[in-house]
Design a protein around this nucleic acid. Structure first.
Lengths: 343, 343
DNA sequence: GAAATTTATGCATACGTATGCAACTTGAAT
DNA sequence: ATTCAAGTTGCATACGTATGCATAAATTTC
């Protein structure tokens, strides 16, 4: 029952000053004398006063809330990014309001409406796309949007991804250099730019060396679809000797099927390469060779882009691509003298 | 530049009605005639009006924001819970504001202040404790708190956990029934109730059957500490033949060390049992026998407790313990005729 | 058809804070 | 002492919405 909200007015009363004075003491950069500050802070301390962020936002037009739209947290890449994003924003006095969506139906649009109702200062979508109508609404509302790990053509949307095309290409070179003859791909969801770009880069890398892609199935970024694709791809006699999987999360499923259902040896019978370098990839149970998405730098770029728009009214739409290194581990045959040959 | 906020006043003007009328149309349960509703909704639609949640909260005293305090998302149990919590709350019109803390310093207290500044309607802490002073402040502010997966003696704090003592006991019975003679424990962080309770239950279960705990080290819920504990515990000649690890996240590290550093066979040389049943536990690479924490039911209990306090002004502090089953898989020797003997 | 009752609507105000403006204080410069 | 500028403070108002109260309209009741 003790919901005794204490307001700036009560503090003012106790300190014997005006409400404006209290407000100014709690507003960085306002004009206050040292004695005033002392009086007010003392009274505030005694009453346990803290400014009401919501009331403040009503007048400043800034809520210090960033909306995060995310589809699923099963793929370790996203909780990791969420943790980093939250920490980085928290350091700047912002906090993350979470909105879960499903990527299939129109829940994105529905949820995004609720998001704007909260007067968020900015929006980050993690691996989630947006309709044009929605982009227009955010733009009209003056709310900047950054697509994290997803590209989209809309000219109003900032985006931060790894260099997926280049990444796909690097993996192709690596597998070809490793002497693989029958290279396959279990692709990321074809409805996503990341999935398409990685595949495109991979294909282009193969072509460049004259190699050929012997099989390619959409793994939809889920364990189930990736496992099914693996069974299909490796059931015949003439199975691939290498497979690039569109992300680590699927790669783990692929490895599980190869090893425990099909009794194949990795990398003896087949090489597996993933994409993301989530923490689990380096655990010895998988020891997965994978292209690292540098989540630290991606988060950094996301936050600075967002705060640039919010605090400095930047108008430059950023389309940032960040290069990542191939993490060579034990799940794929390593070409002769590989680490020296190219950096 | 298009930050054209449209307010209820503009809608009222266009519809030729009062601002109150607009407000009432958007307030469920208010008294409005059908024609009025139609007129207003039409005008609102044309202008793209949506009520400002923050302004509304100022007057209703309800923000529809739930603060979630969480220390780390590396252990898959937490992103999973976060996803479920968010979905469940979203279905009731609430959303989660995320606050990351470190469990070691006093950042919990610091962060909790910011939390209250946002006028959250309730607080969920995931595996994070609270100082008494803090519990008092939340109580004074009338903000209900639910500790998720963490117990604490304070009489003001609701809590939802699995039945950790009973869980520890079940695992002891299982290992003893499996004929293990040298049983060890890599415990959860001794600073947490979950860690202490699981250990206590485990010890009590062993005692009950006359078995003895040959070694026990605090794994602190981290991979690193758990790996170090494993090396210490299994370095000598007289190594344990079974180990109960305080949660799955550590158990994976333990298995990695046992298999890949010490070249031991699981369960041939040593049985491993975890706690949580995160998704990864069922993947064949680990195939971990573990005690399931029923996150669905825990989330359900958390949400209903919280909403009970918020919407019905409940005053009953809940200390909920939920039983979970032992998921018998391949990482520990299975007693003869086990599944039949007891349910 | 008039009175009593219910239902709709508008008016005014309140929520807790920030800020432009004017009035005032202080101290320096003349 | 006198003038002026710089620094402080209080007053009043605004942000966008919800709601008690009084009035007006619609409905029921006899």
């Amino acid at each position: 029952m003790g919901s005794e909200k204490v307001t700036s007015i009560e503090v003012a009363k106790r300190a014997g000053v005006s409400q404006s004075a209290v407000s100014r003491v709690f507003t960085p950069g306002a004009s206050v004398s040292p004695k005033m500050a002392e009086k007010v802070l003392k009274a505030a301390e005694e009453l346990g006063y803290r400014p009401n962020v919501l009331a403040r936002s009503l007048i400043t037009g800034r809520s210090r809330i960033i909306g995060l739209v995310v589809a699923y947290l099963e793929n370790q890449f996203y909780p990791d990014a969420l943790e980093k994003l939250s920490n980085a924003l928290q350091a700047h006095g912002y906090h993350i309001l979470v909105f879960m969506v499903s990527n299939e139906d129109d829940s994105v649009d529905k949820v995004m409406g609720e998001l704007l109702d909260y007067q968020v200062d900015g929006i980050i979508t993690a691996s989630v796309g947006m309709s044009n109508a929605l982009a227009a609404r955010c733009s009209a509302a003056g709310v900047p949007v950054v697509l994290f790990n997803r590209g989209q053509d809309d000219e109003r949307l900032n985006q931060v991804t790894s260099n997926n095309i280049e990444g796909g290409r690097k993996i192709a070179e690596f597998l070809v250099a490793g002497g693989h003859k029958k290279i396959a791909h279990i692709a990321g969801w074809s409805g996503s730019s990341t999935g398409r770009d990685r595949e495109a880069g991979f294909r282009s890398g193969l072509e460049q060396t004259g190699a050929e892609l012997v099989a390619c199935i959409d793994g939809k970024y889920t364990r189930e679809a990736a496992a099914a694709a693996t069974r299909e791809m490796f059931s015949g006699e003439d199975r691939p000797d290498a497979v690039f999987v569109g992300n680590d999360h699927m790669a783990f499923a692929v490895m599980d099927v190869l090893r425990f259902e099909l009794k194949l040896d990795i990398p003896g019978d087949v090489s597996v390469v993933g994409y993301d370098d989530v923490p689990l990839a380096s655990w010895p149970a998988y020891d997965l060779t994978t292209l690292r998405q540098p989540s630290n730098r991606m988060v950094e770029a996301t936050v600075s882009t967002l705060l640039g728009w919010i605090e400095e009214g930047s108008q430059d739409v950023q389309k940032i691509k960040i290069d990542g290194p191939l993490m060579v581990r034990g799940s794929a045959r390593i070409p002769e003298g590989w680490p020296d040959e190219r950096l």
